Simulated assay, not measured.
Amino acid sequence: MRNYTMETRILKADQVKQAAEFIKKGELVAFPTETVYGLGADATNEAAVRQVYAAKGRPSDNPLIVTVSSVEMVEKYVDHLSEDAHRLIKAFWPGSLTMIFKLKPNALSKAVTGGLDTAAFRFPANQLTLSLISEAGVPIVGPSANTSGKPSPTTAQHVYHDLKGKIAAILDDGPTTVGVESTILDMSVDQPAILRPGAVTEDDIEAVLKRQVNDERHHVNADQAPKAPGMKYKHYAPSAQVYIVDPDDRWTDVAKWIEAHPQPIGVMAFQNTIEAIDWPMNAQILTLGSNSRTASRDLFADLREFDNHPEIKIIFTQGLIPTGIGEAYMNRLNKSAGQMHFKQL
């Protein structure tokens, strides 16, 4: 087993070449995207890829996203890119859409694919990371750069908290702007299927394809291999129990519940919700901004902030109507909460 005692360096924009040298040497480097920070390793180096699973504590049958800096890099490994795939590439790459394609035989290690004959590819909208991949000359795997099961990292500091001493470096480009992981679309089937919602919505995709896509976001059984990250195992959970405050719940009732329980209790809500309530002293409050986009951007960062306060055992978080990016927000929040709601208390 690898001895995790290395120094983890924080690299800035002018140190991309140094980050690429770590990748070439088979080391792990966390990298920024517009969604969350990813954990990079040479996708063609099986030993390096296996280190990613070890560093994260990630189950070995949970496939990894392959992050690229060009369409040509995808074509090197993929059996065929359909006309629909090219339409989506033109519309959304670089950007927050990951697509699953069938691979050429033995194109990538089963450590990358989770033993499947498909792989998920992503072309992120972050110039630092595109430069990193181009400089390294290879695609890199890119799961979220966090301890498996915990909220995804949206700053270099989040990565350092989880993975210091386990990876060589973190390429720091400040906070991410989207805050929830990319949409995953399965293009290896006859009718494209969304396996994970993100900033690129079902409506966005259907507008480009001019046809309906399937919604196959389901839990995978213990004896099944998931086709995409986030389908089988617990994700995004802080140490405290999260409860969703649904749109039809009254926040005055939440405040009364908090007042009746003397321990510190976390609250994550829109700013106008926060300002409208007379909160008891034991409510510890973090804002989710003013709309579904700011809520998605701030969700993981706020959950991680409460993890810094172990005295907080309960977090009440504002639920949204699952439309647009609100669908991605609710997908992550439901998994963080384990489907627990305020009305169940």
Score class of each variant (00 low, 15 high):
93 W>T: 08
308 N>L: 15
312 I>L: 08
209 L>W: 13
210 K>P: 00
232 K>M: 00
15 Q>Y: 07
249 D>F: 03
320 L>P: 06
306 F>N: 11
67 T>C: 15
61 D>S: 01
126 N>I: 01
253 D>V: 01
64 L>K: 06
247 P>N: 13
43 A>I: 02
279 W>I: 02
47 A>H: 13
293 R>L: 08
249 D>W: 04
136 A>E: 12
69 S>N: 12
323 T>A: 07
36 V>Q: 11
259 E>N: 12
59 P>V: 03
104 K>P: 01
242 V>L: 05
187 M>I: 10
20 A>L: 11
231 M>Q: 15
290 S>W: 01
103 L>M: 07
171 L>Y: 11
103 L>W: 08
230 G>T: 04
112 V>P: 01
17 K>H: 12
232 K>W: 01
275 E>M: 12
72 E>H: 14
15 Q>S: 14
49 V>N: 10
29 V>R: 12
100 I>R: 08
284 Q>C: 09
340 M>W: 02
211 R>A: 10
111 A>W: 10
219 H>G: 03
182 S>N: 07
164 K>G: 01
130 L>H: 02
10 I>H: 09
111 A>R: 09
272 N>T: 12
44 T>M: 05
196 R>G: 04
335 K>E: 14
123 F>A: 07
39 L>K: 12
129 T>C: 08
109 S>Q: 11
116 L>G: 01
91 A>W: 06
100 I>A: 05
74 V>R: 06
316 F>S: 04
293 R>N: 13
54 A>Q: 15
111 A>N: 06
141 V>E: 04
152 S>I: 04
51 Q>W: 00
221 N>I: 01
246 D>N: 11
76 K>C: 01
110 K>M: 02
313 K>G: 00
292 S>T: 14
78 V>G: 03
294 T>P: 00
255 A>L: 07
62 N>H: 12
209 L>I: 12
55 A>Y: 11
180 V>P: 00
220 V>C: 09
334 N>R: 15
154 T>H: 07
318 Q>I: 09
80 H>C: 01
117 D>C: 03
31 F>C: 04
3 N>Y: 08
